[in-house]
Design a protein around this nucleic acid. Sequence first.
RNA 1: GCACGCAUGGCUCAGUUGGUUAGAGCGUUGCAUUCACAUUGCAAAGGUCCCUGGUUCGAAUCCAGGUGCGUGCACCA
Length: 928
Amino acid sequence: MAEVPKSYDPKNYEDTIYKRWEVSGFFNPDVCVEKGITDANASPFSIILPPPNVTGTLHIGHAAMLAIEDVMVRYHRMKGDRTLWVPGTDHAAIATQEKVEKNLWNQEKLTRQDLGREIFLKRVEEFAQDSHDTIVHQCKRMGTSMDWSREYYSLDAKRNLAVRTAFKKMYDEGLIYRGDRIVNWDPKMQSNVSDIEVVRKEEKAPFYYFQYGPFVIGTARPETKFGDKYVVMHPDDERYAQYTEGDTFECEWINGPITATIIKDASVDREFGSGVMTITPWHDANDFSIAERYGLDKEQVIDFDGTLLSIAGEFTGMHISEARPKIVEKLQSKGLVVKVDNEYIHSLATNSRGGGVIEPQIMKQWWVDVHKEFSMPHSNLKGVNMGDPVTLQKLMRHVVERQEITILPERFEKIYFNWVNELRDWCISRQIWYGHRVPVWYHSTCQHVDETGVSSAFKPAIVGELQKDEKGLVWCPYCKNSYDSLDHFFQDPDTLDTWFSAGLFSFSPLGWPVFSKTTTSKTGQENDFTNFHPTSVLETGYDILFFWVLRMVLMSTYILGEVPFKTVYLHGLVRDEHGNKMSKSLGNIIDPLDMAERYGTDATRLSLLIGSGPGADSRLSEEKIAGFRNFANKLWNIARFVGTTTKITVQNTQPISITLADKWILSRLNEIVRQVTENIEKYNFSYAGEVLRDFTWSDFADWYLEIAKIEGKKDEILSYILTILLKLWHPYMPFVTEAIWHDICGSEELLMVEKWPTFFKDGVYPELVEGAGKPDFSLVQGIITGIRATRAEHNIEPGKLITAYIKTGETYDLLEETAPIIRGLARVENLTIAAELEKPEDSVGFVERGVEVYIDLAGVVDVAKEEERLQREISMVEPYVIALEKKLSNKEFIQNAPGSVVEAEQKKLVDAKDKLIKLQDQLRTLSE
RNA sequence: GCACGCAUGGCUCAGUUGGUUAGAGCGUUGCAUUCACAUUGCAAAGGUCCCUGGUUCGAAUCCAGGUGCGUGCACCA
């Protein structure tokens, strides 16, 4: 073996190892099958990477996601599954465009309109490409074993075809419609955004009470009040019982007298304000729904740029921020202001991207109708047959109810149902430029009039590849004119919500719609859709459950008639050490790449995997990462020790054990393999890692390796344990394990594709599992620890060899066999082991499970100190004995508790009593 | 307002179907350096498991109520 460095420096290994993995081709399941690594008929395991947005760089949350998914993927690959992890990036329409617009303004003082659509989009694409390259580099740096030959971009040609195909299918079914509805308009971004993209911010703003005819109305938004001509109150409100619905009255208002009509509607909250309100249907979602119910007029007051329209009279053209105080001033002068509440707090709707203040507007937009009933076109879903009447909402509810999709942790199922049950139609069109263009073309000259009465000269027709006839002509479905190019048509200028394309991500990256489910071949990208859909697991942050998971279920159940994935595993947020969200403004960002540079990728991954429960937010600190850097180094040195003292051979079969310590460590190892395997299967990544770390550091390094130094001749066992440990650690720490495998174990093969260890279900020594012969090493450990503690307490120098006596009772054979270990690890020179012996002079002692141990202090016993120690111990054992006696004298306990529990308690009592007597004896001899 | 979480040593968290004298890592204290590893080892201190009540032979664990913290949704005329 070549000279191995004393400590593990990740920088010297990580890049080289990643290249070796890439060159091997084993990230690609087809290559694994071809090379005989994976059986062609093995069960598939697939994950589609939740594609990071091309808005910049990956943050620590991404790193956590990559680490968790890589653990699953590496585990399943080693287990022998046909394992596919598809990488990708998302164009994130609004987010990316917003970022580029911001840069454009900051650096060049230009707007997107200044550049024009085509040039602006080029700029966005350049930005996106840069971000993409950074992200790919970062993913590789984190050690992810994704199949880069299958990488996709959410806006590439294949995904665009998927979007168009899905859109057309839903449009033809009537599930996508175009309609005038109230939307969340962002005047700053000049686009509408969906309900879930709106965030509410608490804001203090004056709340005004105005006289409106005989009524007092309250509002925080006087600028919307110009067109208000309906006054609404609760039908049961006794204060207004004298008014009847439909009554009209004249009143003085902002720009002169108006006629107002009374409406009685139960949606009015009698407790709020005066219990009377006027409505502004064009600029308020609730008012809109009241207006719809009663067939009231709707009038636009505020323009799309946030300025007032001509209805505002003298205020026309003013921005609302400027107009508001002036309007109040005017009402004041007319004596119509009753009072002003300056302490009013309301939540202001803002756009989560860019922060623009939302101004509701009625606009013609494209919508997905989630409530429309249709007959299921085809179905592989449990409990849904072809032809069954369903709605998109019902499908989404159904598959989780029927457990076709399992959401983990379970509590998120409730949240999922809350969302599904409150689902409203999904507005999918956006007035931004970056994204999938709405795949609808209008015929410029067709005079067809919309049957819904919408006064548009044009009716959308989906053309292009999807609507060309056999001769390659494009035709208008209404006037039936056909053309040999798209010149007579123009495309809808809007783009689609980024989640529309994201909804297809369980299958569009697998080749749909070009490749369908017909193949029997288990390899080849053209067969991915057959071989890997539904995917095994969708792993993502809980914050995205509703944006994304819901949309994917919608798309897959309707379009394919099957679920997108079998399990949803949600991870939490990574916060800073104080529990705060990481943000630039707080300056508490921990950059994953920076950490990987300084502490190694493996340490960074471990810090994100261990110490956080599923779905729970976790706290991260640099100290934590440094701690795991130490552990990676520990593993390195364990291997280095094994490598320098023994000839390492990769051991895949259980070696023959010789000593009690051997049996103990092999039993423990078997148990660890079982626990790690089972907990990874159950998504308990943290627990599996903790168990493994404790075994590696404590049982193996601190105990067994020290024993190996004493007992010697352990080449096979050490090689075997190291081999298994490296395999178990590989999914968590791919680099250091691969480095050890190559540099220390001397293997030219890749650890990445080694077979995952198996375990004996009933333990490695089934004949020893029960009863006295069980390799119970803990007595020996207890005795050693006890001697060490006694030494420390009596200030015996660590290097000094001592004389000790052990009165074994029935455990003579066990302790006689392990005497060399006790001598070595407790630094005992003269050790007397006997079934019976008297307490030697000038000695102090302790009791370990019935075994009495005495240490010769060579005439320097500090009687007072020892007395104090014995008293202290006795005072701890006494109440314990009393508690046990009480428990065991309780007839109900004896009757009701299982026999094994009673037995265990009886044994505890015997041991504790025995210990108490022996301690009291020692105390007595001491004072004699 | 509705819903969902969380509460365990100074800090971060385990505690997997109710049976341990409640564990780990970091931090703290003492000791150790020609030893695979000081990115280490040995030992120690430190906890009324948020409160109250209930179920049970037995509760950190199950139930109810309360307190504190957090998250999502709704309302905000």
